[in-house]
Structure formats: C-alpha cells, structure tokens
Simulated assay, not measured.
Amino acid sequence: MELRPLRSFIAAAEDGNISRAAARLHLTQPALSRQIKGLEDELGVILLERGAHSFSLTPAGELLLRDGRNLLERADALEQRVRATAKAQTIRVGYSPSLSAGILSPAIEAFTQVHPRARVDLADLTNNEMVDGLQKGTLDIIVTVPTIKDIPDITWTTVQKQAWRVAIPRQHPLLEKKTLVPKDLHEQRLVVYSQKEYPDYWAFIGAWFKQQGINARIASECDGVTSLISAVDAGLGIALVVERIACLIPERVVLKTLNPQPEPLQISVGMLDRHKNDKMLAVFVEELKRAGEVDHASR
C-alpha cells in the first residue's frame, strides 16, 4: 500500500468533505476521488459510503483511519531519522602527531560535544600526503605546517606557534650544557625527517643552518616522529624538533633549549577555499584554535 493515497484518504476522512480535503492537499476533487477509489481497489474493500453530497466511513474505513494515522506517524518519524542520518557529517582530518599533540584530542572532544552525531576520521600522514589528500578531496582538514610554496586553493589558519628544541640522547656531550647555541650544532650528526616526504622541513632547517654557518652531517632520515625519536634514542645523532614533542619522547632523550633559534613553527589548519562556508568545519577549526591557545597557556 502506497502512503500517498493513504494520506489522501485520511485527509478526506478527517475533513468529512472531499472538496475541503482536496483543497488542503492542493488536488482537484476528481483527482482525490480517484486516489481513494484506487486505494479501495487495492485493498479490495469499500472505505466510504458515498451519498449525494456527503459520505460516511465503513467499518473498514474507520479501522484504516485509526491505524493509518499511526502508520503515517511512524513513516514520518522514520523519514526524519533517515534524513538526519544522511546529514550527519564526517570530517576527515589529516594530521602530524608531533605537531598536533595537545591540540587535536581536546579539540575533537569539545567539537563532539557540540555536534554529538558528527564523525571525525583521523589519518596520520606526511605533509605531502596531507596536502595531496586535501586537493584530491579525500581529506577535509589538515593539521600541519603551511607549505613554503603557496597553494592558491588552500587557506591556512594558525592554531599555535611552537618553539624549537634540540633532542639529544642522555650520553651525548651536549647534555652538560643548559642552553645550546647554534654553533653547538656545527659538525654534529643530525637526525632529520625524510627529505622526500618532508621537503618543507628540509628547506626551513637548511636555510637556517646556512644562515648560522652550521655544517651538520645527516646521520639518518626518518619517515615520522616515532622513528626520528627512536633514532635519537639509539644514539645515531641529535634532532631539531618542536617543543611540544616532549610528550612523545622516552626518558633517555632530553630536550635542550636553543638560543637563538629559528622562527617559531606555525602549526596551522589547512582547508580548501571552497569549504570556507561549511559551518561544521568552521566550528572544528575554532575548537582547534581554542585548544591551541589553552595548550600554549598551560606550558
């Protein structure tokens, strides 16, 4: 049984008049009469006892009116739930653990309190993979460092600035110094992120090393923060990292202050320009900014 003729029958039964019901349903009287007749034919029963100018419900019509209302209420409720489910947005986030530590988790927690039905999917990726995913539409937001090369269709919003530190193993000669200076890094074995996967990191650090007259020897290239810290822990060399990485390192690795140091690293949210009017994404970005401010104030 289709719901449309059922709605028409219930409207007519409630109004007690075909003409008034037809007007309420924006139908002509003959069209409404045909729908009700079609419903009777489908069910094989008479629903209305028709008179010259009025009608009355048969027992079958009274039953259909009573139970039909319940059926339509359930159908309308189901439609609303299905539509609401379809509107439940999934936000796909690419991130770097070493940069978003202390920011991403509280932001997601606060965001899901505002949008409890929203879903947040996370992907731990390199900078190149994040930018590529954003441009291809497989990611909605990325939390990383803005690319040195300007990409016209990506808007960046800074959520936190992080100072630089030098990660060294506990047996290293530099451990005795409270604060390091750039010349302390000269001719040191250096553990770095992979040039292929983190070209902007290489460009940034390389430029600063050149400015400071530092000649560092690359001891190991790593594909992520976990392998980089493991390499430092194993004594392969020292690494220039951001201060927030402290929550990820083992006890055998120490972070030393560097003074003077490169410009603070800007942890930012990248989003395609065409999504700038997406209200849910805007809320998520605001929560990331708020989490960045709270995290910075707590240090």
Rank of each mutant, 00 (worst) to 15 (best):
L43M: 06
P59V: 02
V242T: 07
T155E: 09
A101L: 07
A203S: 14
I91W: 00
D76S: 13
H115V: 07
H53Q: 09
L78H: 13
A31M: 02
V82F: 06
K177D: 02
R69T: 09
E40I: 01
Q35I: 10
S194E: 10
S100K: 04
G237H: 00
E79Q: 15
P5C: 01
S100D: 12
G213A: 01
L71C: 11
A23G: 01
I267V: 15
A110F: 03
I151C: 04
G51F: 05
P106L: 00
E14C: 01
A52Y: 11
G68L: 05
P106S: 02
A23K: 14
L25A: 12
R24V: 06
G206N: 10
E14G: 01
L32T: 10
S268A: 15
S8L: 08
P116G: 09
D140V: 02
I218Y: 12
K210G: 09
I108V: 10
A21D: 06
R34P: 05
A88R: 13
V283S: 12
L39Y: 04
L258H: 08
K136P: 03
S33V: 10
E73H: 07
F9N: 00
I148S: 13
R34D: 11
K87P: 03
H115W: 13
E79D: 14
H26F: 11
V114I: 15
R244M: 09
N127Q: 15
L288E: 06
D121A: 12
I249T: 09
T126G: 12
H26C: 11
V166M: 00
K279M: 12
L27W: 01
L104I: 15
D15H: 14
A60Y: 05
A163T: 04
I154R: 02
I103A: 01
A107C: 07
H172Q: 01
K183I: 14
I214H: 06
Q266N: 15
E187Y: 10
A21T: 12
V232F: 00
D67A: 08
V225Q: 07
S227N: 11
P173S: 09
R119F: 01
D132A: 13
A31L: 09
W164A: 01
M130W: 00
E79T: 11
L258C: 09
G61V: 02
L125V: 03
T58Q: 01
L27A: 03
T147S: 15
T126R: 07
T147L: 09
A246I: 10
L25T: 05
K196E: 14
F9K: 00
Q211S: 07
I103C: 04
Q195T: 12
V120E: 08
S298H: 05
H296K: 14
E109W: 04
A282F: 07
N128K: 14
D121L: 13
I238W: 04
H115S: 02
